[in-house]
Amino acid sequence: MAQTMELSAAKPPLRKMRRTLLGTVPVQSPIYELHPATRLFTLLFLGVVSLFIDLPEINILLIIAIFIYLRWAKVDISGLKIYLPLTVTVAIFMFTVSIAFPGADPNFHSFRFLGITFYLEPLYWTFASYWRLMAMLFGTIQYFSTNRERETLVAVRSLKVPFVITYFLSLALRSAGMFLEDMRTIREAERARGLDETSMSLRDRAKLYAMYMIPLFTLAIRRTDEISNALYARGYTPSGKLENEKQRSDYILTQYQFRRIDTILIAAMVITFVLVGVLRIGFGVFAVTQSPLRIFLLSLF
């Protein structure tokens, strides 16, 4: 038993962070007080509600609220830096298109700057659309930054989504991870054989990445057979139904508690969403024409 003792003594240090789909969250994060289903509702709410809100003022406030939520959840916000180039290039693209192709309307208010004619209405519409887009994007990103695959699955299973769909989702997320891991292995192997990507031209690098796809796909195809064999070996059926027509048991769900705060938060999100939708569609509230900033800018002309 000496080896056994040795093996069990060599425990890895306790992990303090949990890896989420897009980053890391401390194990002690208060976000884990919320049931995964509640967290999934934040995705559905924050990722979609801005669809009904054209007012940039509200969308900017929503983005600030999302960042406060991430701070509260103790998420390492520096991980969101990867989205910085995207937020800038999207703005450049949108405003360039808006300036170059404003559409002709004699009622537009125009002004000249650096020899270029700008039209306020399309420009402000682009400004409003940009913040609406950003609010929806960060509403989506917050979810992937704070949740693991397991929590996504628990959430969808709690909502009684059929087992075949939840298992498919789990396997898809897992295979994305395996694909990345395989890619890392192949790249390391190439570097070990002296490949220096930094000295390659963009074209050669693109060719190299395309060539990576062949071994990566070969591995993935082989895994299709292996995983289906493993599933069969452990009694998996796509329907999740047993021979006696009962449903398979779900142990993992029992590890999460649905509390009163979850009910309150979900109800609040659903009611707010419906209310915003009704106000926007039925009464035109949150339309860009009501933007205080726009009204102020128009008053300057």
Binding site: R148, R150, L171, R174, I227, Y236, T237, R248
Partner: peptide, 19 residues
Amino acid sequence: QFTSMTVEEELVFGLENIG
């Protein structure tokens, strides 16, 4: 043969399948 995303889920996967 891994079918799940945590060791715990891996261990209970087959047990859940047989109900």
